[in-house]
């Protein structure tokens, strides 16, 4: 199987025994010849978007602005369109407008960079003061909506993709009606899953070294060049707030994700299977297919 550009092979799990899993991760443990190295803590801030009739949700898509904070320092912004998983091991489409710094919104106060508008929204979470009806929040939300209206037919990759897919309810003119529906944040503990030739089983020791551009290789593997990077995992703990009328005010999600990072994807999938088998037996995990957006909307829309 070849992974096309704009796709990722990912699996998600519901965690039954959170404590055992966190212990395993914090201790950088080992599972059947696979080593784990817990390397970073990320914080993500998300603003999910949809049409007034939730046509993205209905078409099994999610669209979000995401602010990433890496280890409390580096910050990036992106606009991501993702498909839902069709099966527990399927590949998800992911289209990202990865550079938002040069997009600006015209406001009463002049042209303002899109990330600055997003920060107004995300600051409510950072300051733990959620007030959707506040003047600043309403200003930021309407500015975002305005930017979408004006750029729905421009060269923004997720909008281009939605138009290309020609899905019901997502005709070209409907893209301009997309507006913010949820926002929230996510704490993410990320770990590398790798093969340490000194601590592995014979079957895994002979696997060819992963071959990636140096810029894509994490520092940990630059320092330990005999370690073979295969998978990437994250423990995600997220909370989302609704921007539309609903009985619930917030939704909490706790899940575990595994992503294939190996250059020979089929071989990486085999390792994912092996890893999954061990996860299920050690931490009572179950496969999960719904994205965080889908899980949240399902919960918010329950009468």
């Amino acid at each position: 199987m070849l992974l096309a550009q704009g796709t990722e092979e990912q699996r998600k799990y519901v965690i039954k025994d959170e404590k055992a899993l966190l212990n395993f991760i914090n201790s950088s443990g080992q599972l059947e010849g696979l080593s784990l190295y817990n390397h970073s803590k990320f914080t993500y801030f998300d603003l999910y978007l949809d049409t007034p009739d939730f046509d993205l949700y209905k078409n099994k898509l999610s669209l979000r602005f995401r602010k990433r904070v890496f280890n409390d320092s580096l910050v990036t912004y992106g606009l991501q369109l993702k498909s839902e998983m069709e099966t527990v091991s399927s590949v998800r489409m992911e289209i990202e407008e990865a550079q938002l710094d040069f997009y600006r919104v015209k406001t009463d106060q002049g042209w303002i960079e899109l990330p600055k508008i997003l920060d107004i929204i995300f600051s409510q979470i950072q300051n733990n003061k959620i007030d959707i009806s506040s003047k600043e929040m309403q200003y930021a939300l309407s500015s975002i909506q305005k930017w979408i209206q004006l750029n729905a037919e421009s060269t923004i990759s997720p909008f281009q993709k939605i138009a290309f897919l020609k899905l019901k309810g997502l005709e070209r003119e409907k893209i301009a009606t997309i507006r913010p529906v949820l926002f929230g944040s996510e704490k993410r503990i990320r770990s590398h899953i790798y093969i340490d030739p000194a601590k592995t089983i014979i079957e895994l020791r002979s696997m060819p070294m992963n071959s990636l551009a140096l810029s894509a290789v994490p520092d940990f593997f630059k320092k330990n060049n005999t370690f073979n990077w295969i998978l990437e995992t994250s423990v995600d703990s997220a909370v989302f707030y609704s921007l539309f009328k609903t009985n619930k005010t917030e939704v909490e999600i706790f899940e575990f994700e595994v992503e294939n990072k190996y250059f020979l994807h089929e071989k990486g999938t085999e390792i994912m299977n092996l890893f999954e088998k061990n996860l299920k037996s050690n931490f009572q995990m179950e496969n999960l297919m719904d994205s965080k957006y889908r899980q949240s909307i399902k919960k918010f829309l329950v009468p």
Binding site: F102, K106, W111, S154
Partner: peptide, 17 residues
């Protein structure tokens, strides 16, 4: 692509102005 998008974004703003 990124470079072209930067150019287009400037044109979008010019149009709005």
């Amino acid at each position: 692509i990124r470079h072209i998008k930067q150019l287009i974004a400037k044109q979008e703003e010019g149009f709005q102005e």
